[in-house]
Amino acid sequence: MLNFYGVEIASRLLLGTAQYPSPAILADAARASGTEILTVSLRRESGRLREGQDFWGLIADLGVRVLPNTAGCHSVKEAVTTAQMAREVFGTSWIKLEVIGEADTLQPDVFGLVEAARILTSEGFEVFPYTTEDLVVAERLLDAGCKLLMPWGAPIGTGMGLNNVYGLRSLRAHFPDVPLVIDAGIGRPSHAAAAMELGYDAVLLNTAVAKAGDPVAMAGAFARAIEAGRAGFLADPIEPRDMAAPSTPVFGRASLA
């Protein structure tokens, strides 16, 4: 079974909670996905609106684990402080660590990411780093204390799928025993299935479900695609080849020419 920092997880789909048409649809989509981990964030609270209190009630009712993020942080200091606040509010040492380096692509600042991961690990956090597929950065993150890696499939919210299949395959081959989660860029269930067929352990997505025409149906579709992709990986797929090879036996064919 999938294991994140000593916690066994049955569902290989991690789901984001943002951008749904309504709180009710978010709740239904979460249930339809079968997810055991929802990602959440921290934002400014106002005494009048108390938005956070209502949202937290909704999430608590779903009875799943939460993975707080440091979304929007562009510096190590911001990310570390946000993680510290998240640990207190959400009561978990898990943190999806994002240190954003570039606004157009929301590409991780991998230098800041490694530094923040080191600081947070030393403070007892269990870091889920949102990173690129770069092997050297991956090594540095593991050296910094991360026990799993979350490389992007494509930039957040683009829905492009797996932009660098070679890089992702290399990462999988290089770290056969490290839990690897594709985080971001997934658009369709087939992208998620492809990630699982590469041997990735799980997929984290948000926009592809939340912005679908029917988020609840899409959540279910992703759940099945991820299960199918995982089962396909475990069943040891054939390698592609250039030339055709008849699947029906040639021997015994009637002579009808």
Binding site: A18, L42, G52, F55, W56, N69, N206
Partner: peptide, 25 residues
């Protein structure tokens, strides 16, 4: 931390951030 708020004195010009759970990806 919450437990340190009462012991954290404020000064003129201080910047306070107060955050709560919110939707995130």
């Amino acid at each position: 931390p919450a437990a340190s708020r009462a012991a954290t004195a404020l000064e003129d010009g201080d910047r306070i951030e107060i955050v709560s759970p919110r939707q995130g990806g």
